[in-house]
Computed example of a mutant assay.
Amino acid sequence: MKNLVSMKDLSVEQIMAILKQAQLFQEGASSQLEQNYTMANMFFEPSTRTKMSFEMAERKLNLNVLPFEAGFSSTLKGETLYDTVKVLESIGIDALVIRHEQNNYFESLIGKVKPAIINGGDGTGNHPTQSLLDIYTIWQEFGTLENIVISIVGDIGHSRVARSNADALTRLGAKVHFVCPPKWQGEFEANNDFDEVIDASDVIMMLRVQHERHDGVSTFSKAEYHNAFGLTEEREKRMKDNAIIMHPGPFNRDVEIASELIECDRSRIFKQMENGVYIRMAIIEMILKGRE
């Protein structure tokens, strides 16, 4: 694996290898990288979880991390993403994590630049590292993905998380259902009634309402959305005894999920964030070792 821009880049065998390596890192294993590598994290959209967990992963792998601030870069002067990456290539960067508002931004880079490209999220397209940490969290919980019923609920049409998970979870044998308002389902087949899926789900994965992608048009009030498509305390009581709650974050309290449920016993939301560090360590090591 030379780059990771989409879950479609990974076979089932590669996904499982990443999960197992993440588990080893979580158990205290050391990095097996033999060279001294330098990385940079290029985030052109706001991020807390992805950006900071990548930086933590890089530091745990004893990599050199070169700071990059999009708001102070020459992209503000009109420099293209390709030219910026070529600059970083010229000064010796080995790998880049890139988040960009443009879907498929990586098409201008793959095969044309030397640094490895890891997609930290592209527009409404892909978010492979989030998908992998989600898969790892479910695998930790149930020991398998086979026949696990996963309901992904919320702003489906605008969600790169939904797109990445739809492909990967299905290939791993999970049964994936989507729930959202009709106007937000995009290309997905979706159920428009949350209450129909609660009782049968092993995993309820809530998604953030992406107000910034709705062009300022509000379809629901916060209360209306919470009542119709939010994980309320009443809905949580109907979940299976061993079912878990997930959310990629950031979460809007009392919109897609009741504030009281964010840290309840079922919640794996902060566990997902913890797991993100180990998954990203595994991804980085796999990519860099493939270049040794």
Rank of each mutant, 00 (worst) to 15 (best):
N3W: 03
M7V: 13
D9N: 12
E13S: 13
M16H: 13
M16F: 15
A17K: 14
I18L: 08
A22V: 05
Q35Y: 14
N36D: 15
M39C: 10
A40Q: 02
E45V: 14
K51W: 07
M52Y: 11
M56W: 02
R59E: 00
P67M: 02
G71R: 11
G71N: 15
F72L: 15
F72E: 13
F72C: 14
K77N: 10
K77P: 03
E79R: 15
E79G: 14
T84F: 07
K86P: 02
L88R: 05
L88M: 14
E89S: 15
S90D: 02
I91F: 13
I93L: 04
R99S: 13
E107Y: 12
L109Y: 13
V113T: 12
P115V: 05
I117L: 09
I117E: 08
D122Q: 12
H127N: 06
T129Q: 03
Q130A: 07
L132S: 07
I148W: 00
I150T: 07
V153P: 06
H158Q: 14
A162F: 03
S164I: 01
S164A: 04
D167F: 12
T170Y: 00
A190D: 01
I198R: 04
D202M: 01
I204F: 10
M205V: 09
T219N: 11
S221M: 02
A223R: 15
E224I: 04
E224G: 08
R238F: 00
K240T: 02
A243R: 03
P248Y: 04
N252P: 10
E263H: 15
R266L: 06
K271W: 05
E274S: 12
Y278A: 01
I284Y: 01
E285H: 10
